[in-house]
């Protein structure tokens, strides 16, 4: 199935500065996508997403699936993805 991933701001830069990435991947979760992207984009990207000590996703990283923050979804990072889902990745943001 096809998943679209958009990285924003500093994370976009670490993802080859591409506006959108398309992934062909079967039977995966949000965490699975983050791991796949880490393999593809290397250590700097990986360290931006995962805490090198705890191996957990940094609490300040925002991951949204179809416009919903992962921590608002019942299975959080273990949420299963489906065909056509759009994943958005943000570094810490504040403003307004």
């Amino acid at each position: 199935m096809k998943i679209r991933v958009k990285g924003y701001l500093t994370l976009k830069k670490l993802m080859g500065d591409k506006a959108e990435i398309s992934l062909e991947i079967e039977n995966t979760t949000i965490k699975g996508v983050l791991e796949l992207l880490s393999q593809r984009f290397g250590q700097d990207f990986k360290n931006s997403i995962f805490n090198p000590k705890t191996k957990e996703v940094h609490s300040h990283i925002k991951v949204l699936v179809n416009g919903r923050h992962y921590h608002n979804l019942p299975d959080r990072l273990d949420t299963r993805l489906k065909e056509g889902d759009e994943v958005a990745l943000f570094p810490p943001v504040a403003g307004g």
Binding site: Y8, L9, K62, L64, A88, F90, V93, A94, G95, G96
Partner: peptide, 8 residues
């Protein structure tokens, strides 16, 4: 800048 938040 604060426009940082526009995308999210």
């Amino acid at each position: 800048g604060t426009t940082l938040v526009l995308d999210i």
